[in-house]
Computed example of a mutant assay.
Amino acid sequence: MKQDGKHPSGAKSRKKKYKKELRALQIKLVTLQRHLIQHDLQIAILFEGRDGAGKDGTIKRIIEHLSPRETRVVALGKPSDRDNASWYFQRYASHLPSRQEMVLFNRSWYNRAGVERVMGFCTDHEYREFMDAVVPFETMLVRSGIQIIKYYLDIDREEQRQRLKARKVDPLKQWKVSPVDKVALKHWDEYSVARNEMLARSHSEIAPWYVVCADDKKTARLNVIRHILATVECPESDQQAEAPDPDIVFPYDGAHLLSGKIAP
Rank of each mutant, 00 (worst) to 15 (best):
Q33G: 04
A133S: 02
P235A: 11
Y151N: 03
K19Q: 15
M198K: 02
D170E: 02
G77L: 02
K165T: 14
I146A: 00
K261P: 08
R167E: 07
I248D: 06
S259P: 08
V211R: 02
D238K: 13
L25A: 01
K182M: 12
E101N: 13
P171V: 05
N223A: 12
S192L: 11
D124M: 10
V118P: 12
A11N: 14
G5T: 14
L25F: 04
E138Q: 14
N196F: 07
Q38P: 03
I225R: 01
R72F: 07
Q38C: 04
E21R: 15
A85T: 07
R201D: 12
A220R: 05
I248Y: 01
I43G: 02
G114A: 08
A241V: 14
Y191T: 01
A75P: 13
E190F: 01
F121L: 14
R157V: 06
A113K: 02
Q174K: 06
W175D: 03
R226Q: 11
K186P: 08
V249I: 13
M198S: 01
D170S: 05
G77M: 06
A200P: 04
W109P: 06
P171S: 01
V169M: 06
E116Q: 09
V193A: 15
V73H: 02
R167Q: 09
V135H: 06
E233R: 14
D181I: 03
A214M: 07
I149P: 07
P79N: 04
S237M: 00
S98C: 08
Q3E: 13
E190G: 01
R99V: 12
R143P: 00
Q147E: 12
V73Y: 01
D124K: 10
R112W: 09
A255L: 10
S80H: 13
D124W: 12
E159P: 06
H125A: 14
K28S: 14
D83L: 06
D154N: 15
L164P: 01
Q3P: 09
S9Q: 15
R221T: 11
D215K: 11
N106P: 14
R167S: 07
R201F: 09
H65L: 13
N196R: 15
G57S: 07
I27T: 15
I225G: 03
L257W: 10
L76F: 08
S202K: 04
K186A: 14
I43H: 11
H7K: 15
D216K: 08
L153W: 05
H256S: 11
L141E: 04
E205G: 15
A93P: 07
P8S: 04
I149V: 12
M131W: 11
S144N: 11
D124H: 14
G49V: 05
Q174S: 05
C213M: 10
C234K: 05
P264S: 04
M198L: 00
